[in-house]
Computed example of a mutant assay.
Amino acid sequence: MAETEALAARVALVDVAPSRRQGGSTRALLTPASVGATSGFLGHLELAPGEVVTEHYHPFSDKYLYLIEGSAVIRVNGEEVPLHSDEALLITRGQRNRIENRGSGVMRAVFHVAPLAPRPELGHVDTEPVPDPGCVPPRVGG
C-alpha cells in the first residue's frame, strides 16, 4: 500500500455515546469529526416501544433510512409512511420527518445524511419541542 493511501476507518457502536436529545438513542458513527467523512454521515437509531424522534428537517441534506429490526411509522410532511424491517426510505432535503415506534418491540435503523450542510449548526432544524433539550447533539460537522 502506498503511503498516501489511508486505511479504512472503523467505528464500533458501543464506543459512541448515544444522544437522546430528540428521543430514542441516536449514535452518529461515521462523521467528519470521527473519521474525516467529507460527503455525509452515517448513524444508528434505536427506539423502544412508544418512543419517537421528534419532527425535524435537514435543509441541505437527504436522509436515507434503513430499518434493521422492528417497525416504525415515519411522518413525512405530516403523511404517515409505515416502514418494516428490511425496508428503506428516502427523505429528501427540506422534508419534515418524525420517526415513531408504535410496535411492541425495539426498532433499530441505520441512517445516512448527505450531503453535509455548509456548517454543522445549519444541518438540522427542529420543528417541535425535543424531549431532552439540555443534551448536546453529537457534532457531525468538520
Rank of each mutant, 00 (worst) to 15 (best):
residue 31 T to W: 00
residue 88 A to N: 06
residue 133 P to E: 08
residue 17 A to V: 05
residue 114 A to K: 15
residue 130 V to G: 05
residue 48 A to I: 02
residue 70 G to M: 07
residue 67 L to K: 07
residue 141 G to T: 01
residue 74 I to L: 14
residue 109 A to C: 01
residue 113 V to L: 12
residue 139 R to K: 11
residue 58 H to Q: 15
residue 45 L to A: 04
residue 29 L to V: 02
residue 121 E to W: 02
residue 36 G to T: 04
residue 110 V to N: 08
residue 39 S to L: 10
residue 37 A to F: 00
residue 79 E to P: 13
residue 99 I to T: 08
residue 30 L to F: 03
residue 142 G to D: 00
residue 51 E to V: 02
residue 104 S to K: 11
residue 102 R to L: 02
residue 36 G to Y: 03
residue 2 A to E: 15
residue 141 G to P: 00
residue 19 S to D: 14
residue 80 E to Y: 12
residue 102 R to W: 01
residue 80 E to L: 15
residue 89 L to F: 09
residue 73 V to K: 08
residue 103 G to A: 04
residue 115 P to T: 12
residue 126 D to Y: 05
residue 41 F to I: 03
residue 42 L to C: 05
residue 125 V to E: 09
residue 137 P to H: 07
residue 44 H to C: 11
residue 33 A to N: 08
residue 44 H to P: 06
residue 110 V to D: 04
residue 113 V to D: 10
residue 29 L to T: 03
residue 139 R to G: 07
residue 70 G to V: 05
residue 133 P to M: 06
residue 44 H to Q: 12
residue 123 G to T: 04
residue 35 V to W: 05
residue 128 E to I: 03
residue 80 E to M: 15
residue 1 M to C: 09
residue 103 G to L: 01
residue 100 E to Q: 06
residue 118 P to F: 09
residue 37 A to W: 00
residue 136 V to L: 15
residue 97 N to W: 01
residue 22 Q to G: 07
residue 3 E to P: 11
residue 31 T to N: 02
residue 100 E to F: 01
residue 63 K to W: 03
residue 39 S to T: 13
residue 109 A to P: 04
residue 85 S to W: 00
